[in-house]
Design a protein around this nucleic acid. Sequence first.
DNA 1: ATCCCGAGGG
DNA 2: CCCTCTGGAT
Length: 219
Amino acid sequence: MPKKISLEDRKKQARRVVKQLATDYPIAECALNYETPYQLLIATILSAQCTDARVNIVTKELFAKYPTAEDIAALPIAKIEKLVQTTGFFRNKAKNIKAASQKLVDDYDGEVPQDLEALVALPGVGRKTANVVLGTAFDMPTGVVVDTHVGRLSRRMGLTAKTDAVKVEEELMELLPKKEWIQFSHRMIHHGRAICDARKPKCDQCHFAKFCPQVGVAV
DNA sequence: ATCCCGAGGG
DNA sequence: CCCTCTGGAT
């Protein structure tokens, strides 16, 4: 169990982290490939328990043939399953992608609504996916994207002790100014993939090591 | 064997 | 709260 950290300490630590993130990752962008908000929505649904590199391989073919909500809503489930098979959870993802696309066609003229409640009401779209779409495609941050990387790094760096993603998000929203939310998530994800990975974090190469409480500690 | 830009259902 | 869904990568 991680020990409890004071709010003041966590705020101070958050400022260090934000500063180092900006230094190490001046360009904070989404690693998923997409041309439209709809495509980002689909790519983000596919990214569950899958690497972004794998998602990009799958969406390259998917979006070339079926770029819009109308296109995917019209596809048979079996066809979608085959297209997204290598991203894992393919039956759930295929069903959700078709149903969400159909709902977009029916209720929003095939466009993606710029509203958290409306997004979360789409099949297969939870808080994490909705935050990604609103923050990245529409530049309308409604929260901090907390995926497996953001959660893991936030715990290792002493920003939170929570494991539940919603609670981690609440604590990060307390620590970070709203204008930092989007870049923070993208940069933390980059750092999580490149240096601070789950199995063997490269602490010897990590610029955060000088203020990271987890350096040299089994995580 | 463990983890990857989760969400839905019980 | 828990469990389930899944292939790919290391």
